[in-house]
């Protein structure tokens, strides 16, 4: 027998999870804490990863925060004698002429990427979930773009979108259209990096949503088909709601990863021409090591703004989880 999982247990579970997070007062006493106190067991399972977190993340995170609140030059970065400067770096960054374009580009880049990646990934997951010959192989082939070093995949896109010798423009000209300066005109540069990034992100969404579909028990569909629901209805009324937890984590991770996309944009346009495809991640690198003079402190400040954005999305995610349960 396959382990039956009904909507009830999923919901019941999430309720427990949320109340658990809300605080110890509302927590229901558990029966399985017979031998060891359950929180000790839980922390035993968590211990390795927490240690790992402390060793590998604490120092870089601390360093990044420290960088952003001091006035570091390359020299003081090395000998560690930078003066505390409060929020100066943040003020400088926010008043920079790059701030507004970077903010809008980051927002557009992130939301458009996610919207397309997620919907295409979900549609493909549903498509490949049908049983047909070669389905598993073709699905595996969708992951191949991820095997390429980003240097190569971004270069290939830049190659295809090249104004003069790119295949895309050559195709457009065959169709009687004009050459588009994909990477070199302010209007198209962001579109170009978006296309490449959506392409890169499709496999991620496909795989996660496919796993999500796999974890929906077949009985649910059987019941629905007995009720005579159409395929479309089944999808929107049953599949999609059941996919919500997986969708939420996929979108959240997608947001986090898209916010920090760097290589694709850097290789294709370097954020240019001018600031037309600059995002926070690109800007931070430009300030740090990608420009003419290393401005480590403002670079760290920009990076920390991104961390704050991720923080906000994390809060939204937790909110959403709570609402899902109330529904």
């Amino acid at each position: 027998m396959r382990i039956a999982k009904t909507t009830n247990t999923v919901d019941g579970d999430d309720v427990g999870r949320v109340t658990g997070q809300a605080g110890p007062v509302t927590r229901t006493p558990r029966t399985r804490s017979a031998r060891l106190p359950s929180h000790l067991v839980a922390w035993a399972f968590l211990a390795p990863v927490v240690l790992y977190l402390a060793v590998f993340y604490a120092y870089p995170l601390g360093r990044n925060v420290d960088l952003s609140f001091r006035d570091y030059t390359l020299r003081s970065f090395i000998d560690g004698t930078a003066k505390f400067s409060g929020f100066d770096n943040y003020v400088e960054v926010i008043h920079s002429p790059t701030f507004v374009p970077a903010l809008t580009n980051t927002a557009v880049f992130t939301f458009v990427s996610i919207a397309f990646q997620f919907s295409i990934g979900l549609a493909l997951a549903v498509f490949f979930f049908k049983k047909f010959p070669l389905a598993a192989t073709l699905r595996a082939l969708f992951l191949v773009p991820w095997l390429l070093p980003l240097l190569v995949s971004a270069s290939v896109w830049a190659w295809m979108l090249n104004s003069e010798s790119g295949i895309v423009n050559s195709g457009l000209e065959h169709l009687g259209m004009h050459q588009i300066n994909w990477l070199t005109s302010p209007q198209w540069a962001l579109v170009s990096v978006l296309i490449a990034n959506i392409w890169i992100g499709i496999p991620f969404n496909l795989v996660l949503m496919y796993s999500g579909l796999q974890s929906i028990p077949g009985e649910v569909y059987e019941a629905a088909s007995l009720d005579g629901a159409s395929k479309w209805q089944v999808f929107w009324r049953i599949t999609f709601p059941l996919l919500r937890p997986v969708s939420a984590i996929t979108i959240l991770l997608g947001l986090v990863y898209t916010l920090k996309v760097f290589d694709i944009i850097w290789i294709m346009t370097r954020g240019g021409p001018g600031n037309s495809s600059v995002t926070f991640a690109i800007w931070s690198y430009r300030l740090g090591f990608g420009g003419g003079s290393p401005d480590l402190s403002p670079a760290a400040a920009v990076a920390n703004l991104l961390i704050l954005v991720a923080f906000a999305f994390g809060l939204v995610y937790i909110r959403m989880q709570r609402r899902l349960v109330e529904l």
């Binding site: 300066n181 070199t184 005109s185 302010p186 240019g272 021409p273 001018g274 037309s276 420009g291 003419g292 003079s293």
Partner: peptide
């Protein structure tokens, strides 16, 4: 020089792209 060069290539990009 690094500071000036960065602004010079940025200006080049802005002018050549028509921005």
């Amino acid at each position: 020089y690094g500071i000036i060069s960065e602004q010079l290539y940025t200006a080049m990009q802005n002018a050549l792209s028509g921005a």
